[in-house]
Design a protein around this nucleic acid. Structure first.
Lengths: 122, 122
DNA sequence: TCCTAGTGCAACTGAATGGTTGCACCTGAA
DNA sequence: TTCAGGTGCAACCATTCAGTTGCACTAGGA
């Protein structure tokens, strides 16, 4: 499977195996239910700090921070300093990259996935 | 995010968080480069046994078996006994489920992903 | 200035994971 | 029946990971 330039959303992504470890970090980040929950909360309620994300939950602030950093390394969130707090915001870039990899992997033995892949790439 | 019936490829899938742990196993299985490679080999070269997959590689048969079982539990491959060997074959069902989850997660903050999600659901 | 909210870093523990080896069991062929 | 190829199970080791706690540092506000 050769590398290819793919456009998804507003993003130009090189796929698949962008650098090998990128997909590891990406799928690894999504493999944890806590991280998926944090990601969804960022999507639904907008940018928040780690402290904000931790309050009300059962996880300590440092626990949240570790998960958020995993998401950030995976390219699923990005951070911005605002005053004395750091706000995290969800990003679609790598999510699109993962979708593309899976569509590539699935195409060729599933015709509809293949058609969908061409739609995304177009 | 409520559960929903989605059709992708030839498969009817219930999404998202089919049972919570399903996505854990699914993304967890895809997070490992060895497992992604094994999956791609099954896709490209058709059903094979664990012994066949192991020969020529650096991994022991038992190592391959463990990875394949992770893929099987995740619903990415299925097994069939043929004589005295067990052949593994790739499946698209859960792959489609993962794609759907990601499109759902990404929609609402990326318009093109949202449009794509509707295409898949249709 | 002092105080406080928020963050960052390091150490530590328990659990999960990747990988190996050894051995027993089953099945097909001679 | 005997033998060999293929599989399954269990034990074991090293590494990684999730989560916590404690403490130091920084930036805003009174």
């Amino acid at each position: 499977m050769a590398a290819r330039i793919v456009r998804v959303g507003t993003v130009i992504a090189v796929t698949p195996e962008p650098d090998g470890g990128a997909l590891d970090r990406l799928f690894g980040a999504l493999a944890d239910p806590t991280r998926r929950l944090l990601l969804q909360r960022l999507v639904q309620h907008g940018p928040q700090s780690a402290t904000r994300l931790a309050e009300g939950g059962t996880l300590s602030r440092q626990g949240v921070t570790k998960h958020i950093q995993a998401l950030e390394i995976a390219g699923l969130v990005c951070s911005r300093r605002v005053g004395r707090e750091v706000q995290y915001r969800a990003t679609t870039a790598q999510l699109a990259s993962a979708v593309t990899w899976m569509l590539d992997a699935g195409s060729g033995w599933d015709r509809r996935l293949d058609r969908l892949r061409r739609d995304v790439a177009g």
